[in-house]
Amino acid sequence: MRREPPQTFADYSPLLFPAAMLTIFFVVPFGTMIAVSFFQRQQGGFYTPAFVFDNYARFLSAFFGGVLGFSMMMAIAVAICCVLLALPFTYLLTRMARRVQIVWLVALLSILSLSEVIIGFAWSTLFSRTAGITNILVALGLMSEAKALTPSFAAVLTGMVYQAFPYTVLVLFPALVRLDPTLTEAARTLGASPLKAFFTVVVPALRNTIVATLIMVFIFALGSYLLPQLLGRPQHWTLSVLITDQAIYQSNMPFAAAMAVFLVLVTLGLVALTVIAGRKGEAA
């Protein structure tokens, strides 16, 4: 049976349920959010329909600029750390036995599926004074006294890298599996060391994949909404945390919605860049 265009109305019927669900519960909520971003906020957490730009005008404050700048900087730092750690790891993983690969993939998937609440709790425990990593250093005689390592910028960064690392590996995995092994073999035959072959053959061959991965991890890190709150101080809050905070605790839905719309625009712009980077990769 070949694929054929739908002939009668009945041919479209399988599409009805999915199309209705996605339209009602994704497109409409998205539209509602955009509408709310133009609404007028009332005292006490309510809002009334209006068409004002007040919520967007608040972006122009120094505070918001600071948060936006910090969020971007944080996400860039996470993306770079993750790709640096994950690229050699994934490359070596794809060259291992299938059974070993599967064990690592199961472990990575399990960590990737973990709730941010749980990751935040686990790292705050590891960085705590009473149960933390500093106790090991004290036991080894490297430190005189155990101390708490959170809240701090380094704690937020570590937590976010931990969260994004499995994602980075899984994004890189398919591209590295498909990488032609004869490329490195040729380099080795010509006398390059494994390390040199990696940097002069593998990395350049994957340039577009690396760019696309950096952008995807960047988007992933932008979405982190709890770790900066659990492991950092208020100055370490990112845009996602601020949106949650405005929506839930400050009850300022219009402002939260306006920030979310802004975040969507940033994300979509970056997705477009990823697609372009991917296209170039195919053409080359």
Partner: peptide
């Protein structure tokens, strides 16, 4: 789309909805 966008966006959209 819901999985590609930052989760807080889907969450907020559904909350307003």
């Amino acid at each position: 789309a819901p999985f590609t966008l930052p989760p807080v966006i889907t969450a907020l959209g559904l909350l307003t909805f």
